[in-house]
Design a protein around this nucleic acid. Structure first.
Length: 263
DNA sequence: GTGTGGCAATATCTGTATAG
DNA sequence: CTATACAGATATTGCCACAC
């Protein structure tokens, strides 16, 4: 003869999902059961220790693994739906965490935001298949644009830029490669320095063949940088970017998407 | 159509600080 | 030592205009 309520499917699911993520007290309250009843059920389900059950990482630790900054992850949470949530471990403190599963799901959609060359493979658990190619793309990007983001322009950099412009024989790809920055960065710097000279333009009457368009779309989706795609198409990164726009792509923090696609 | 001009907006990064 | 907050500086991105 049982005295307790029978556990519904929904309740069991909830328990399994929140075990280790929400305090036992919280689960008990939500399910309108006693703390003991919840503990007992979890034990019988073989869920194990709530604390070690968590298959994820704190956001703070993740920022270290990714070799970025805590503030950047906070920005991703705020603006890009990074799937972090508050979790109570041992004490009262709530800490931002993300499960590996949630992380990889988000990472797939936002792969362009992540630089996989910054961390060793498998340091965040088993990696989905697409990661291998993205990491390769990121390593290639580093060859095109070796200077880390926000690297200040030195006097020498600026002088070299001016000198090259004054030769009136260098293109964006050539100047960017020499300065180890993206072509877009070079373009912006020319503007900021108030220079009147411009790199010589590449021919602008070469139509993209269907194969070229397909390659562009493919590489863009896989996360290759514009410089690499441009090299393969024998064009400029600026041009490839423009073509991507004409193909209907929009960009949000480097992540390409098509307007008509919903979700 | 294609590559690029121009510029506002914003992400990244550094540094400092606080609390547990 | 870990987790978090926040501000300032500036390098880079998003977007659309525009000349060929």
């Amino acid at each position: 003869m049982r005295r307790g309520k029978k556990w519904s499917e929904e309740e069991l699911e909830y328990l399994e999902d929140k075990w280790g993520a929400v305090s036992i007290k919280g689960i008990a309250k939500k399910l309108n059961r006693s703390v003991n009843a919840v503990k007992l059920k979890a034990q019988r389900m073989g869920l194990g220790d709530a604390r070690s059950h968590f298959d994820g990482i704190t956001v703070s630790q993740l920022s270290l693994v990714l070799n970025t900054h805590y503030g950047i992850l906070k920005n991703w949470i705020k603006l890009y739906d990074f799937p972090a949530r508050k979790k109570v471990f041992a004490a009262e403190n709530k800490v931002l965490v993300v499960t590996y599963q949630d992380f990889w799901k988000w990472a797939k959609e936002n792969r362009h935001m992540l630089d996989f060359s910054r961390f060793e493979r498998l340091s965040l658990g088993p990696e989905p298949k697409w990661v291998e190619e993205k990491r390769k793309a990121d390593q290639i990007k580093k060859l095109h644009v070796p200077k880390p983001h926000n690297t200040p322009w030195s006097k020498d950099d600026d002088e070299k830029l001016k000198w090259m412009l004054n030769q009136f024989k260098y293109t964006y790809p050539e100047i960017a490669e020499e300065l180890k920055r993206s072509q877009a960065a070079v373009k912006r710097r020319i503007l900021d320095l108030g220079l009147k000279q411009r790199p010589i333009r590449l021919p602008n009457h070469i139509k993209y063949s269907p194969e070229e368009e397909r390659l562009l779309i493919d590489l863009l989706g896989k996360g290759y940088c514009f410089e690499e795609i441009a090299d393969r198409l024998n064009r400029s990164a600026l041009g490839v970017r423009g073509k991507a726009e004409r193909l209907g792509y929009k960009f949000k923090n480097g992540v390409p998407y098509l307007e008509k696609e919903i979700g």
